[in-house]
Amino acid sequence: MKTLSFTSPLEMAASEKSWAWWQERKLQHQGNFSVNPFLKDFSLVRRYFGKKSIGFSSSQEKEYQEMAGWKVPFALWSEQKIARTQLLLELSNLSNLSHLSETLYQETVEKCYYYGDNNEQIAVLQSLFLLPNCSRFVSLALDTIRTNVMTVFTGLACENPFPAICLDEHSFNNVVLKALFSEVPLGAILGLKQRHNGSLADMIHDWMDEREAARRPIPTDIWRILCNDKSPRTQERIRRYLKGEDSEHRYGVAYFLNETSSLLYQTEIIQQLEQEKDNKIHALLERIVEP
């Protein structure tokens, strides 16, 4: 990963007063670092930078995504979030230059989260993957998995590669389950396909059993996960929903099967094609059997 810096877009976004503050506090931290003034500045960012998105062009965003190695929607990040990310990036640079010890660096990032309000915690969580050796911050993510504040949880779970990069299987699965449970879109979880595992599919099936028994709705993007799985339990369920009464689920199954190259369900799909009345689903099914 090349060294990533948001300094120039921040300068573009900042007023003269904000930029003067930004420069001044940078010199202070470089000269004589201590934790509490850094935490204060991490909060005070909101006084100097706006809540509106930084407004990258698509080519700028792409450039940042290439440097970051992940398709993170930086163009939608607020000026405040970008500024806080840059503060943490600078903190890691200070650590590289031995202005502060590794321990103090880690402690400072953790304190930004620990003392942070909801938006500050989100900024920390979404910045983590850009920091060197980011797996040292796993404990913050584990804390977030237990939060009830959904905006903070989605800060970890959605459009953030940190869970896929750093969490073990059990914790990653917990992120996915909680997202599912809270009606968070699964498509926003990065690395879902790469981190697919049999336990996750099992957990999803148990949850679906429960929902079916209670006759409660099941999100139709659940097939985003199950269509990556080939266990007998998954095959049974896909076959059942493929010809089920719920057209949204039939669409979900067809949509995500079409994204895989699985040939497991050819017979059922051909049978379903004969009776499928919904044109959109029909078209998807046709594409699967005759690619």
Partner: peptide
């Protein structure tokens, strides 16, 4: 409901709120 999450909706959501 199927395609939700194809675009980075979380952030849009935060900006709105």
């Amino acid at each position: 409901s199927v395609l939700r999450g194809q675009t980075p909706l979380v952030e849009t959501n935060q900006e709105e709120s």
